[in-house]
Amino acid sequence: MKYYTYYPGCSAEATASPLGISVLPVAKQLDMELVELEDWNCCGSTPYWSVDKLEAAAMAARNLALAEKTGFDLVTPCSNCFVILHSTNEYLKEFPPFRDKVGKALAVAKLKYGGGVKVRHLAEVLYNDITPEGIAAKVTKPLKGLKVAAYYGCQLVRPNGFDDPESPHSLDEIITSLGAEAVPWEMKARCCGSSLVMSEPEVALELINKLLKNASENGAQCLITPCPLCQINLDAYQSQVNSRFGTKYNLPVLFVTQLIGVALGIKPDELALSQNIVSPMRLLSPYL
């Protein structure tokens, strides 16, 4: 059994609930003990980062201070939470005056952060600690014949990634370990438009369209992604792309943990498969 402190992030409780739900049974089957960080708060995310950096770092640091008490690595399934918590750690190391101010802010709540927490992305933990071989050993329903495009998005692999920032391969190896076929495609680590889908929808829809086009032209029957925002953009906005560009995509977009869960023989309910907007049920029915 491997132990981790778990930081779900806000979206895993809401718009990315299929992620938050599917992580738990998958971790259990893979002998990972994820202990949720007590009373964690929002990481601050890119918006706070772009409004006030000191407040943003103090917000992230409350989580780091709480996590430090647990003594385990802090694991998040959210790519944006990962970048923010990881970068906060770096800024606190690199900029002593900044660290002193964050320290004074934390002290108001009798908290202290010594800089000792290792922040990790769940996908990296699955790849490095559990390993594709370890996952393969637990597969009970091999996904033979299923063509899957691994969509890494940006913040899993940039700027602090564990994989190649331009042409990553870790999730492709995980797909193969499940018995499925990893479809090669060029745009696997290109941007989906992130939160600009709300403020500048035209810009984001254009980027989402490019991704769906590239994945489907390469024969993908579905995509997987570790990132809440990427999943929402490609799944929930797929019908908007279809009406905007006259396309007819019907590509299910699963969270990595959902696809792993199917291959591990976990029930569809426990993986929240019915919560995906583009239904993956017909595609996955041979394996359920």
Binding site: A14, S17, N41, L54, V108, A109
Partner: peptide, 26 residues
């Protein structure tokens, strides 16, 4: 409709403590 848009906010227990941290940072 896919249970991905809660109508109510989720609030942390330590909200007063968090606000104090943020006010101090400000």
């Amino acid at each position: 409709l896919h249970k991905r848009m809660p109508l109510k906010p989720s609030r942390i227990k330590g909200i007063a403590e968090l606000k104090a941290i943020l006010d101090k940072a400000r």
